[in-house]
């Protein structure tokens, strides 16, 4: 791989992703490029069905690109691995035969990344962070959808991966819990400065959670823009800056660009090379 700035953790270059079904070939994303730097809270924003989940799964190593390359930490992604823990969009990612605590401990045990004595403590701390201590010995079928999501988040965070991949992790939560989880994520980031790729289709969430926002076009997903989110938070919800950014994103998302005119920031690699 080309020697690049050590800050660049994830490099996605001209990645085209396709699904082959018995009678269709669906192109989910087309020639997507982006660069995620160490410590980024990188948000992927786009309308439903534009290939956000697919792109995230490709970074996770679950789907092979038909074109282009994905490099994480200087190595090309070829298969899934615990250095890229993913929180999936669907609920049934927890193992129904394990309790909450066992579910959170499982990746640590499977990868052997931590000492045996350490896994339990780390798992308990992670469960406490998502406020599920009361439910630690309960089986997943007794949890609500939002609670399952929080377990999945705790499980991924406890492993401290190089990149955390989160696919609409807060979409199933009620407004209050969502806000709390967003704040918790930011507080945790402040503490640990991990790198996270975060998929959402809420503009507000993108601005509040993200440090950088990648905007994808409707299906098939192509890069429309990449913006700096700045330090806007819920406190600035009524500020003109927040409104202006939200409006700008909205326009980029839903107004068709004139053909041929690529928008600003769509080629971040040009600056990197």
């Amino acid at each position: 791989m080309t020697a690049s700035s050590s800050l660049e953790l994830v490099q996605v270059r001209d990645v085209t992703l396709q699904y082959k079904t018995p009678d269709h070939l669906v192109t989910a994303t087309y020639k997507v490029s982006c660069t995620v730097e160490q410590g980024d809270r990188y948000v992927i924003l786009g309308p439903s069905g534009c290939g956000k989940s697919t792109l995230l799964k490709a970074v996770g190593g679950f789907i092979k690109p038909v074109g282009g390359t994905i490099v994480v930490n200087g190595r090309e992604v070829r298969e899934p691995g615990p250095d890229r823990m993913m929180v999936f969009q669907e609920f049934e990612q927890l193992m129904p035969w394990k309790t909450v605590l066992q579910n959170v401990m499982f990746p640590m045990q499977a990868t052997g990344k931590y000492w045996k004595s350490e896994t339990r403590e780390r798992a308990l701390a992670a469960i406490d962070k998502v406020n599920l201590t009361k439910f630690k010995d309960v089986y997943p079928h007794m949890l609500s959808g939002g609670m399952k999501m929080r377990v999945a988040i705790a499980r991924a965070m406890a492993l401290e991966p190089d990149v955390l991949l989160m696919d609409e992790p807060f979409a199933a939560l009620d407004a209050l819990t969502r806000r709390k989880m967003q704040e918790e994520l930011l507080a945790l980031w402040d503490q640990l400065r991990f790198t996270v790729l975060f998929v959402t289709h809420s503009i507000e969430e993108a601005i509040v959670v993200g440090s950088r926002i990648l905007i994808l076009s409707p299906h098939p997903g192509r890069v429309r823009a990449e913006l700096e989110a700045g330090d806007l938070s819920y406190a600035d919800l009524d500020s003109p800056a927040f409104g202006a950014l939200a409006k700008r994103i909205h326009t980029l998302l839903f107004e068709a660009p004139a053909p041929g005119t690529s928008s600003e920031g769509a080629r971040p690699l040009a600056a990197a090379s």
């Binding site: 298969e79 669907e90 990612q93 035969w97």
Partner: peptide, 28 residues
Amino acid sequence: PETLRLSGRNCGLKGVRYVALILIPAAF
């Protein structure tokens, strides 16, 4: 479920360990 398989592979499980730790309990 596909997601359960993916989250098993996410932990780096392969081959016999994948079958024993994910597939067999999930298909129990």
